Simulated assay, not measured.
Amino acid sequence: MRPFYALLAGLLLTAAAAHGQSPASDTEAVKQTINRFFEGMRKTDSTLIRSTLAPTVILQTISNRGGKTQVQTENVAAFLKAVGTPHQGVYDERISFERVLIDAQLASVWTPYQFYVSDKFSHCGYNSFQLVKLAEGWRIAYIIDTRRKDGCK
């Protein structure tokens, strides 16, 4: 009987350890990473933004030019320079977390947003974030968004 109790104790300890990495704590950590990204934009702090990004991050936007849908890839270094260089107005992207899905080291997050420069409305749309859990924590690996001026929430 002793091997049975040893096995049972091992299973219970494994279950308790797995429970310690609760989905709720991962969900909050994912949200914190995304919130830090936008905090960096508001503060004109490219170092803070960079700390939220995976080394091979991809930034894309879906646009409609001349009635044709296009996907544009943004240069990450140019993006960091643009948001990290002093400029008029505060870049303020106001998001809400509509959906956060997590499986192991992958998170997918859907956020409607409204973008303001200081208090002046610029555009709105949806962000789709893909995050990966690295040794340093959750990092943004991919962002794609839509942008429009009307039909906003």
Score class of each variant (00 low, 15 high):
20 G>K: 10
52 T>P: 01
24 A>H: 14
100 V>H: 00
91 Y>F: 13
87 H>E: 06
69 T>I: 14
1 M>F: 09
131 L>I: 03
32 Q>L: 10
42 R>A: 14
31 K>C: 05
76 V>Q: 03
132 V>P: 00
118 S>P: 03
129 F>C: 02
151 G>H: 06
128 S>H: 11
38 F>Y: 15
6 A>D: 07
65 R>P: 01
132 V>G: 09
83 V>F: 09
35 N>F: 06
135 A>T: 14
145 D>C: 04
133 K>A: 03
39 E>C: 05
106 L>K: 08
77 A>E: 12
34 I>W: 00
9 A>N: 04
153 K>T: 10
51 S>I: 06
62 I>L: 06
61 T>W: 02
17 A>Q: 11
115 F>A: 04
96 S>Y: 08
99 R>A: 11
123 H>E: 03
31 K>M: 13
64 N>W: 03
135 A>L: 11
19 H>Y: 13
34 I>Q: 01
3 P>L: 12
69 T>P: 01
86 P>M: 07
151 G>S: 08
97 F>P: 00
84 G>Y: 03
77 A>V: 10
58 I>G: 00
121 F>V: 07
69 T>A: 09
118 S>V: 10
10 G>R: 03
153 K>H: 09
25 S>G: 07
15 A>I: 13
67 G>Q: 09
152 C>A: 07
66 G>A: 11
